[in-house]
Structures are given as structure tokens and as C-alpha cells.
Design a protein around this nucleic acid. Structure first.
Lengths: 270, 270
DNA sequence: CAAATAGTGTCTCTAAGACAATATCAC
DNA sequence: GTGATATTGTCTTAGAGACACTATTTG
């Protein structure tokens, strides 16, 4: 083993070019939409966090939160730390949605990014995060995937609307990636990252992997159904939804009150 | 925009530490097992490609094929190139199984790896790849996942047997990763990479994403079933399997012959 | 009571799993 | 014919989707 020790002593990383590595995170949250009618409940709207860039490149454009991977950290720890720094909230889930490494994706040079999707719950405290600083805002998400592979991503916050146009390229090898036709003003290749994160989120929501993470500890089944519908952009019948999640939840003794209609039993995740 | 140009001119990547980035690939293939009885068909065995390291570190240990990401290449192109160099065959599929970035995973320093799973078909030509050089060999795969989270990975080639012991750590955040208890002599953290690749392969095989890639263009339904069974380590009833894949395949006019039993119709992927 | 949501019962259709039976070739 | 695999038919059961109906609260 002396030989190996000697080898390692002489080994220098500087002999080969190295890229900078970043973690970019798509932070999802469910925003409660206000309603005019006192009897009508609010619907959940899927939203994600964007940050207005204060420095070059893409100064003043909207971009995903993220940052460079420092030595001594795993890429997951890095992503988690960045979410905490940007939202001051610990996310309920974090999933990798793949590497983005196309040459030229960053004008600063050779910078590749590992993208993550993360979900934060909609409790009191998290509702405020990203709202105090004008440079971090929650954008409502609309993502329509067309049958011919093209898709439209619309992110809106008040009168700010970012409309990106993409198409999904299914290469051989089972790797499908989104190509940006029109970034809609979203910085870097972040529109493609968001599209892939949404696809991953919807795949996860189909088997109920993430839907609980959007809600507080105790919730009604209708609230849970709202999450599912907002994430997947579908609508399902209450009776069927309840049957499907019956095995995944646990009753509590508590009920909602004061809503102008029949109270609902609160459930916990099993 | 002058301002941005000036910024980019003054920007230097050398101001921040950067890791080396590699792509490591788990190349899967189905090996035909010889049979003694002239009437009995051969069964397929799932196997993967390992390379005996000729240089430090882990000299003489078995490791996954892979290499450093050079500038101007995407990580997928890099993985694809490495597979071609090692097997002289273009893989039928390539899927990312995630980033491995734990500090200390490589004794040479800060080196992080994007791992891929890839499948090559079992045509005449591919059967020879990896067999000519004694430093690249196909290892039969046995991967038993226990209910308590521990799992046993056994790779064998002739009298070489590598037995690794791992356990699956399901952290919060939905990220589950394999921790190596005993590497079984497999270099670096490659035992954990293989475990994750196998999990991804099995998940894909459940919805028939990859099973066709193991076979030549024309195949019998029994051959297809053998792939499914070898990859998932299960056994299914022929009648049910045929019904399930009926919509995914297309008949041809050709049949197998000379097998000592009823000939089978050849199918193509639809 | 009216409006709105909460929650249950049940019908149909499809798909999965199990099992039995028949078909066809090479030796 | 025998031994092997190929292929089809059908019974049962579980789950998804659709729809109708009942229950409960607040203004």
C-alpha cells in the first residue's frame, strides 16, 4: 500500500480542467386563493419561488434559488442549505430532477447544475417566507403539456407574467429533456429545469409521494384532494379520492369549524 | 448590456474551488446461460460490466466503467462515450440514477460522480464485448432486498465473487441512499451506485421501459418474459405476461425453428 | 331554509392473478 | 409418441371511475 500512498501524494487535481457545480432548487408551495363568497372555501394554487437577480449575468431577471457547491458538502446538503437560506423554512421533501450540463448554459463559463424539486408546507410561518424581500416572490404555476411534445409554462405574480415555451425532446436512451424555444425572460436554462421538476412532481403526486408535504400536520381530506388537483392539474371525484387515500391517512378526533357548512374531520398522515 | 459584458470579462472561475466531475455507468446485459438438455431453452441472467483497475487508487480492484467530464460535453454525452469506449457498443438506453458527492468518496480528492444505468442488447456482436480484454468482464448479478432495509449484492464471474452488504437509508426528504456496510472489494462507492442503478432498473422494468433494450429487434414473447423475470427477480405466469405486453408489441411473420419443441412467433417492439 | 361542503353506497368496467387446456415441433 | 415450449380461454378478485344520495353546519 506504500505505492498507493505515494501515488496519492503526487496526484494533483489541477492537471485536469474542472467545472463549477451548482445546486438549483425549484421550491413548490400551495398558495391559498382568496374567495369572495363567505361560504365558499379557498382553492389551492401551485406556486414556486423565484428570485430577482441582483447581479450579472441576467441582472434583474427572475431565476431559481441556488448556489455553488462548496467542498465538504454533498449536493443534497447544499440544496437543502440554499432552500433554508432563501425561504427560512426547512422543506418537507427534496428530490433530484437531474443534471443540467449543456455547454454554454451559463455565460460565465463551465458551470453545471444539479437541479432539485422541493416542497414546503403551507403553515402560518411559511406563508410569509419570500414575501418580505421584494427580490424573492412566489409565482403561480400553469404548465400545459401538449400531445405533440410542446408545452407552455406560465409563471405569474401580480402583474408580472413569465411565459416560456418549450418542447420535450425524447431522445433515444430514454432521456427526455426540455428544449427552450422561448425562455419568457426566465434566467439561464431555468425554464427547462422548472419543466422537468414539474414533470417529476406530477409523477410523484400520482402515487401520493409528495402531496402530504404541501399541508400542515392535520388536514381535511378535501384539502388533500385540492393539493392533488392543483399539482396534477386535474379534477377527481371526492368518493374515489377518499377511497384511494384511505389507507394512507389516520383519523383524529378534531374537526374544522366556523366555515358556513358541515365541518370536516381532520386527518394525519399514517 | 455593456455593463454585463464588462462583468463577464472580469469574471474568473478560479476564485472558487471546483470539484472534478465524473460519469460512472452501470452497463447491464442479459447473459444466456448454457443448458445441458437439448430440449430445454437457455435462461437469461442479468449481468453488468466491471473493469479491473490498472492504476491507483484501488489498483486491481473491480470498478464501474467511467471517466472525467471534459469541457464541451454534456454529462450524458460523456457517459455515452465511456460506454462506447468500454464495450464498443452503442447502448440501447441510458438513464441517470443520481449524483454521488459524499466527501471522501474518492481518495484522490474532491471528485463527484453522476451515475448512469445503461442497457445493451444481446445480439451476436455485443456478446463478445468485454470478453476479449481480461480487465473488463461481465458479472452475474444477484440483488436481494430485505424488508428491514438491508440488502445483499452479489456479483460473480467464474470463480470471482464480490459480495457487498448495504442498507437503504430513507432520510426525510424522500431521498433514499444506500450505505455501504461491506464493499465486498468493489472500488470506491461503486457498490452503492450499483444498488441504486438496480433499483432504478427494476422500477423501469415494472412499466416495461427497458425490457426491450435487452433483446435484438425480433424476439419471442417468452424471451421478453425471461428479461422481465431476470431483471425483477420474480416469476410470472405466461398467460398474464402476454396479456400485459400485448399492446406494446407487434407480430411478424417469422418463427423460431429447430428448438426441439413448438416454434414461437417472433415479435417486434411497437 | 338555502347554500355550500362532508361523506357514503353501489354500479360498471378493466386489469391482474391463478389455473386449466390445447397446439406444435424435433428427436 | 415423448418431452419440451407456445398459446389461448376463463374464473375470481381488486381497484378505478362515475353517479346518486344523505348529512351537517352557518348565516
Amino acid at each position: 500500500m506504500k505505492e498507493e500512498e505515494r501515488f496519492l501524494e503526487n496526484y494533483s487535481m489541477d492537471d485536469y480542467p474542472r467545472p463549477s457545480v451548482t445546486a438549483d432548487i425549484v421550491v413548490f408551495k400551495l398558495r391559498s386563493e382568496k374567495t369572495e363568497n363567505f361560504r365558499k372555501d379557498s382553492r389551492g394554487v401551485l406556486s414556486l419561488l423565484l428570485i430577482r437577480r441582483g447581479c450579472h449575468p441576467f441582472k434583474d431577471s427572475w431565476a431559481l434559488p441556488g448556489g455553488f457547491l462548496p467542498p465538504g458538502e454533498t449536493i443534497e446538503e447544499c440544496a437543502l442549505r440554499e432552500v433554508k437560506e432563501e425561504t427560512s423554512v426547512i422543506p418537507a421533501s427534496l428530490m433530484s430532477v437531474g443534471m443540467f450540463s449543456a455547454p454554454g448554459r451559463d455565460p460565465r463559463g463551465w458551470i453545471i447544475s444539479n437541479a432539485f424539486a422541493s416542497v414546503i408546507g403551507s403553515t402560518e410561518e411559511t406563508q410569509r417566507s419570500g414575501d418580505d424581500a421584494s427580490d424573492a416572490q412566489w409565482f403561480d404555476v400553469s404548465f400545459e403539456q401538449n400531445d405533440n411534445g410542446s408545452s407552455l409554462l406560465r409563471l405569474s405574480h401580480d402583474d408580472i407574467v413569465l411565459s416560456a415555451e418549450l418542447y420535450e425532446e425524447k431522445s433515444r436512451f430514454g432521456i427526455s429533456s426540455f428544449i427552450i424555444r422561448d425562455s419568457g425572460g426566465i434566467a439561464f436554462d431555468h425554464a427547462a429545469i422548472i419543466a422537468r421538476a414539474l414533470t417529476a412532481l406530477r409523477a410523484g403526486a400520482k402515487d401520493f409521494e409528495f402531496i402530504f408535504d404541501f399541508l400542515p400536520e392535520k388536514f381535511t381530506l378535501t384539502e388533500l384532494q385540492n393539493v392533488q388537483e392543483a399539482v396534477m392539474n386535474i379534477s377527481v371525484l371526492p368518493a374515489n379520492f377518499r377511497r384511494k387515500v384511505a389507507g394512507l391517512v389516520e383519523e383524529t378526533d378534531e374537526y374544522t369549524e366556523g366555515a358556513g357548512h358541515r365541518p370536516a374531520k381532520l386527518y394525519k398522515r399514517k
